[in-house]
Amino acid sequence: MSRLEGDPIHDGEGPAGRWAVTGYAALHGLLFVPVLLVLVLVLVGSILTVVWVGILLLVGLLPVVRTLTGVHRNLAGRILGTHVPAPYLPSTGAPFADLRIALGDSMTWRDLLWLLWGATLGFVASLLAVLLLLGVVTLPVWWFGVVPLMRGRATVDRAILTIGRTERLEQRVQALARSRAMVVDHSANELRRIERDLHDGPQARLASVSLSLGLADDLFDTDPEVARRLVGEARSASSTAIGELRDIVRGIHPPVLADRGLAGAVSALALDMAVPVDLDLDLPDRLPAPIESAVYFAVAECLANTAKHAAAPRSWISLRHDGVLLRGLVGDDGRGGAHPDEGTGLRGVVARLAAFDGIVSISSPVGGPTVVSWEVPCASSSPRITLS
């Protein structure tokens, strides 16, 4: 599940003072011309949708509209001292498919409504805030009224530019449905993999053991030397089958994870890597077992990708728990270019963590570095382990 990100603001700052909000009002004024221009172009594009020109115009305007509303969403958050998120539906990268998604996204229509507000009454409010400062007679009005005026405008901006409780719940249900489908598919693939490994490995060897012991039983009276050789082969095959069974079981739930916890298990993974791995682990002694398992396999899969594909001289792992979220990161300075659509490994990481409402972010430009990071809701009251 990918993150639905808004424009960043400085979380934790209080509401802006009169000088700051006046500066933001002046910035609103500077942005009035592009807001008005985009509003006009959107209206023209809507009229021209009967021909291809209008559709192409709207496709080109969509990122511009979202950039403008993102700036004003950021300003509203700074004026109010709160975060104003932008929970757009995720895009696909295909222009016409993204247009269909955007047309079905309530945030798109909120953005268009805001363009009308921002080019009319919103602009008047910001212009008034600036003009009040410029007159000697109006200076007292500015002193006492500019903050309520701009907070009122920012409140309207926030109400239009972010979703309400009902829409948020709808998006939450959709996200849970997608993550459930991913988890079901991943679980089915894992079951098929285990079945295939058992069929191709231990099952075939145990069948060979049974055949060898049967032949040995028939030959003990007539050719004891051959019978003893067959028993020896059966013993060797059974030992190999036991080793393969252990590997399969270890792939389901590694014993080191049960014995040493997530920090110890990840440290063991790092020691098995052929390239140096820098560790930064700040974790409780124990976390809930399902989350430990999911994060362990996420780290293991990322390291396996590094070893197989990255050609990296070094890698690094960071796992930190703040009492509410377990944040993880696996990176390498290899060739980059990793993408979840080009293999099952990264998709498996996303699917495993999505089952726990985890958010995964993948950054892997060509030439590197590759960084896979995630956040998983996770609470624990056990003692902490810190490794650097």
Score class of each variant (00 low, 15 high):
residue 293 S to I: 13
residue 381 S to Y: 14
residue 264 G to L: 05
residue 171 Q to K: 14
residue 192 R to Q: 13
residue 317 I to D: 04
residue 271 L to M: 13
residue 343 G to H: 06
residue 42 V to W: 00
residue 109 W to T: 02
residue 23 G to Q: 05
residue 40 V to T: 09
residue 258 A to L: 15
residue 238 S to M: 11
residue 42 V to G: 00
residue 10 H to R: 07
residue 15 P to Q: 04
residue 331 G to Y: 02
residue 59 V to I: 05
residue 358 G to S: 05
residue 13 E to R: 04
residue 6 G to I: 15
residue 194 I to N: 05
residue 377 P to W: 12
residue 63 P to L: 04
residue 55 I to M: 10
residue 95 P to A: 06
residue 237 A to R: 10
residue 105 D to M: 00
residue 223 D to V: 01
residue 39 L to K: 15
residue 84 V to H: 01
residue 323 G to S: 12
residue 246 R to F: 08
residue 204 A to R: 07
residue 87 P to N: 07
residue 43 L to C: 10
residue 322 D to P: 09
residue 289 A to N: 11
residue 61 L to I: 05
residue 192 R to H: 08
residue 330 V to G: 12
residue 57 L to T: 04
residue 230 L to V: 13
residue 347 R to S: 10
residue 41 L to R: 12
residue 118 G to L: 06
residue 292 E to Q: 14
residue 229 R to W: 15
residue 321 H to W: 00
residue 278 D to G: 07
residue 37 L to A: 14
residue 56 L to W: 06
residue 35 V to L: 14
residue 77 G to V: 05
residue 56 L to Y: 13
residue 252 I to S: 10
residue 34 P to M: 11
residue 62 L to E: 01
residue 2 S to V: 07
residue 108 T to V: 06
residue 351 A to C: 08
residue 174 Q to S: 14
residue 334 G to V: 00
residue 137 V to M: 09
residue 129 A to L: 07
residue 37 L to V: 15
residue 6 G to S: 14
residue 26 A to Y: 11
residue 339 H to P: 04
residue 349 V to D: 02
residue 7 D to W: 03
residue 80 L to T: 00
residue 85 P to F: 09
residue 185 D to G: 12
residue 382 S to K: 15
residue 4 L to D: 10
residue 60 G to Y: 07
residue 291 I to C: 02
residue 314 R to Y: 10
residue 274 A to G: 15
residue 200 D to R: 13
residue 32 F to P: 10
residue 76 A to G: 09
residue 379 A to C: 08
residue 28 H to W: 04
residue 288 P to F: 09
residue 125 A to Y: 02
residue 91 S to C: 09
residue 164 G to F: 14
residue 184 V to D: 10
residue 264 G to K: 03
residue 183 V to L: 12
residue 208 S to C: 08
residue 134 L to W: 06
residue 38 V to P: 00
residue 6 G to L: 05
residue 313 P to F: 04
residue 212 S to G: 06
residue 272 D to P: 12
residue 68 L to N: 00
residue 38 V to R: 00
residue 295 V to C: 02
residue 20 A to Y: 05
